[in-house]
Design a protein around this nucleic acid. Structure first.
Lengths: 163, 163
DNA sequence: GGCATTTCGTGATGCGCCTTCACTATGTCG
DNA sequence: CGACATAGTGAAGGCGCATCACGAAATGCC
């Protein structure tokens, strides 16, 4: 079992990874006229298909009021549309425009591509060790009370990351 | 060399780690009456000792104007003080109050403790493999243009994470 | 020494994300 | 039918961040 010093350094690596990746995500999104929150909404919409704002609010774990604002912005920038719900006249259905669908598909593609490039020439054993280590880490985090406090299925949050 | 499918899953693990950790950091900080940005400033102050706002702005990579606001808040909540710079009458020196120093020291301690708990019973070889994998990942990220666009010495961003 | 230039901090203003409270319109259940 | 729950939005507000404009002090140059 490693020394405390090493422990802190390792955590430092993890945190650095956090910073590097999230910065890069934000930059990539901005290049497409998106912000983190809006891309996140798009992503969820992609996973679920046309959804009510309530559903999106639960999925993104933000207040319904906030969803209104995000959808407003995405409508204004032509990524999604708001349509009346066919059976519930209180609700509105949020759906992709063609543009929104295309951009989201591109984001997904970029994510796969980025993963491919990232791990492309990594030897099998090293790759397996890394994945196992990450899983272990995740398990340990949850075991020590660090968890995504409930719900939320394994959601890869934004997307995007490619250079 | 692993399959594309695995690649994406692995990236998913990384992103999940990102989300879990940053969420937890934010929660821990909030419990002490701090926000991410304010804690970040405290952290930098801890690493550098009393500093001018300009220095902090460069360190945190935000606009000087924003530092004014963060320091305002930290002064109001009793974490730091603003004093005139001894030789440059334009500048102000930001220093810890006793309370601020204590809280920051506690954060540092918690971070070490968290790292210790996290990796405590992890076998040496597994730990080594994980660290190597993380380093490799970081290197690959930088190699593919994903980088912290310049400056910024190896700064572990916030701190805190323990339950 | 004197004046231009740079630098430090801040006021004003604005955007994005997020929240809570209050309110309308609608759905649902007994 | 009436009581209650639910979907979305207006209003207001907080935090983080940015840019522009500006005064005050420091510095460089002649």
């Amino acid at each position: 079992m490693p020394s405390p010093q090493k422990h802190t350094e390792a955590l430092g690596r993890v945190l650095e990874l956090v910073v590097v990746l999230s910065d890069d995500m934000t930059r990539s999104l901005a290049a497409q006229g998106l912000t983190n929150a809006r891309a996140h909404l798009l992503w969820e919409l992609h996973r679920r298909g046309p959804s009510t704002q309530r559903v999106l609010a639960d999925a993104l774990r933000v207040s319904p009021r906030n969803i209104t604002g995000l959808v407003d912005a995405l409508v204004a920038t032509g990524f999604v549309t708001r349509e009346p719900h066919p059976t519930d006249r209180r609700a509105t259905l949020v759906s992709f425009t063609e543009h929104g669908a295309a951009v989201t598909a591109a984001m997904e593609h970029d994510q796969h591509e980025f993963a491919r490039i990232l791990f492309a020439d990594m030897p099998d054993d090293r790759f397996a060790a890394l994945v196992d280590g990450l899983d272990d880490l995740l398990a340990r985090l949850r075991a020590h009370g660090v968890s995504i406090d409930a719900s939320r299925e394994a959601t890869d949050p934004e997307s995007e990351a490619g250079r």
